[in-house]
Design a protein around this nucleic acid. Sequence first.
DNA 1: CAGTCAATCGAGACCGAGTCTCATTATCAA
DNA 2: TTGATAATGAGACTCGGTCTCGATTGACTG
Lengths: 157, 157
Amino acid sequence: MPTPDRTAAKEKFMAFLEEKNLRITTQRRAIVDTVFGTDQHFTAEQLLEWARERDESVSRATVYRTLPLLTESGLVHEMDFGKDYKIYDPNYADHPNHNHIICDDCDKIVEFESDKLDELENEISHKLGFSVKSQQLRINASCEEMKKLGECKNKDH
Amino acid sequence: MPTPDRTAAKEKFMAFLEEKNLRITTQRRAIVDTVFGTDQHFTAEQLLEWARERDESVSRATVYRTLPLLTESGLVHEMDFGKDYKIYDPNYADHPNHNHIICDDCDKIVEFESDKLDELENEISHKLGFSVKSQQLRINASCEEMKKLGECKNKDH
DNA sequence: CAGTCAATCGAGACCGAGTCTCATTATCAA
DNA sequence: TTGATAATGAGACTCGGTCTCGATTGACTG
Ligand SMILES: [Mn+2]
Ligand SMILES: [Mn+2]
Ligand SMILES: [Zn+2]
Ligand SMILES: [Zn+2]
C-alpha cells in the first residue's frame, strides 16, 4: 500500500467540518493532524495519547466526539478485529475498498484490494435483492509460509 | 437456509464436553438445548432469557461461561455486526462458511454461502503468504428492491 | 447407594471501553 | 469587539462482559 496523500485527506475533512458548520478548534486540529499523519490502525486510546503529544489539552471526550465525525466523513473507518475495543483505519481515505488479513499468531495485519472480490460481492448482493452500501471482510490466518521464509519477525513464535 | 440437524450438533457438543472432561450440568443442558433449538442469531442476554424459560436457575455467569465453550467447539460463531454487544450464530454447525448481508434500513439479515468467494479468499491469502484459518464477511446494504416488491415488511420504512 | 472431590454453580463485586452532563471557554460571523 | 452558540475538560455514569468466592453437584469408586 503506497504512501497516501495525507494533506488532501486533511483538507477534505476540514471542508466536511465547514459544510456542517462545525468549528475548527485547536484540539480538533491536533486530532486530525494525528489521524492523517499515520498509516497505522489505531484505537481511541492510542489516538488520545498521540494527539496529546501535539496538544496537551486534548481530552478523551473530544477524541471520542471527533471520531464519529471522521467516520461520518468516510475518511476513516471503524473496524472490529474481535477485540473489546474498536480499531480505526485512516487508510480508507486513499483506499476506500481495502480489506485485511490478520495473522492470529503474530498479530501482523496485511491490507489488500481486490476488484474481483468487490464484483463478486455486488453480484451476490444483487441476486439476493440488496444494493451494497459497505462491506467488511476480515480473514484470520497464519503466516506459516512467511515464517519459514523468515519474513514474519514479530512476537513470540 | 434449510432446517438444520439440531440433534447432531447437540450431540457433537456433548462429546466435546466429555473429551475435555467437562461436566454436563442441568444448566448447561438448558443452555445447549436453547442454542441448538433455534435458527436465530442471538445475544448473550437473549440466551440467558431463553435458557431461563427452560431452567429458572440458569445464571448470567453460566451463560457467559458456556458461550466460549460453544465457540471453541466451532458449533457456534461469535460475530460483530457493529453494535456494542456480540452476536452468536448457531447456524455454523450446519453451514460452516456462510456470510451475512444486513439491511441497514430494516435490520433484516440474510445468510448466504459462496464457493467462489471461499476460493477467491484462499487465492488472495495464498498470494500474500497466509493460510486461511477463518473469515468473516459482512455486507451492509439496503433492500431497496425488496421494498419495491413489498417483501421487506420489517420496521419503519 | 454412600463417599469423595474437582468441576460448576449463583450472586454480586468489579472492570473498562465508551457516553453523557454541566459549568466554562473559544470560535467566528456580524 | 461582541454575541450566539459550538466545543471543551473533568469526571460521573452506562452497560457488556469478567472475576471472586463460598456453596453445590456431577461423575466416578467401591
Ligand atoms: Mn487498513
Ligand atoms: Mn448466520
Ligand atoms: Zn505470523
Ligand atoms: Zn430493508
